[in-house]
Design a protein around this nucleic acid. Sequence first.
DNA 1: ACTAAGAATGATATGCATTATCATTAGTAT
DNA 2: ATACTAATGATAATGCATATCATTCTTAGT
Lengths: 148, 148
Amino acid sequence: MISIIIMNKTAADIFDEYLAAKGLRQTNQRRQILDAFISVKSHCTIADLYDVLKKKDPSIGFATVHRNLRLLCEAGLAQEIKIGSGKARFELTFGQSHHDHLICLKCGKFIEVFDMQIERLQEKLAEANDFLPRKHKLEIYGYCRQCR
Amino acid sequence: MISIIIMNKTAADIFDEYLAAKGLRQTNQRRQILDAFISVKSHCTIADLYDVLKKKDPSIGFATVHRNLRLLCEAGLAQEIKIGSGKARFELTFGQSHHDHLICLKCGKFIEVFDMQIERLQEKLAEANDFLPRKHKLEIYGYCRQCR
DNA sequence: ACTAAGAATGATATGCATTATCATTAGTAT
DNA sequence: ATACTAATGATAATGCATATCATTCTTAGT
């Protein structure tokens, strides 16, 4: 059980508040899913998380994991990342700062990177086109140190 | 019928050469598909192109359009762009320079943009991580002039 | 604590886009 | 012209995401 605490709030607190605000209920499955998602290495697919959860509670359903990963995204705790044509992957955003990805074409590894200068130039590029940016996705595909 | 000519070669020439090099055959469908793809507005889905082609030749099959759009990608004439969870879209790369996309969250419009400074910084960012970049994808989501 | 209301779950079905299969058609080299 | 075999087109299969629905569980009200 990993607890990142921001402004005296854990991810679980945020989730509970989100549920309350939406009139949704707390359930054992929701607690388990959030815990597992936090402890598992990031960039997991629904199936990855489902497998982890099944070991502790074989009765949990795939649909429930799916639904609640989406719910975590709505609550602002997670984010979906779509790479190529594969399955959707999810990463924790609570306690993480924004970053982009270098993706190895051979081993599939994700390297998280950040460049403030690029971020700023993107803002300017959007502005220059009368465009109001909300979010962006930068993925650089190539070969990592081990695979180049 | 639109003909862009580069180094004395049309897209059709490049395609024919690619086919020859791979021991593949020239067919009416392949010629039709390339012609339609060039003349249609870019960012079309397989279904978009299929609809256009059906009007001229109702016997053409969806699978054939699909297969040959992939073939055009292999030949370096087209490129697949995946946005969100929708269908795959394709854009012509022959005679077009590299660019990134601003994508309107409301009307779905694609604005093509390019910033050399960002391109260079991406190269440096990759290098700094011992990463050999091959291609990249930058998409900025937000609201266009009409929708903001 | 008990109960009613309805949200959540889990098994399964459905939807949808992509890709594979295969009998038939049609390029290509000889 | 012929033989070889790639390509086509109809359809089936696949893969992933999402919808459905009877049942279970949470929560508010008594």
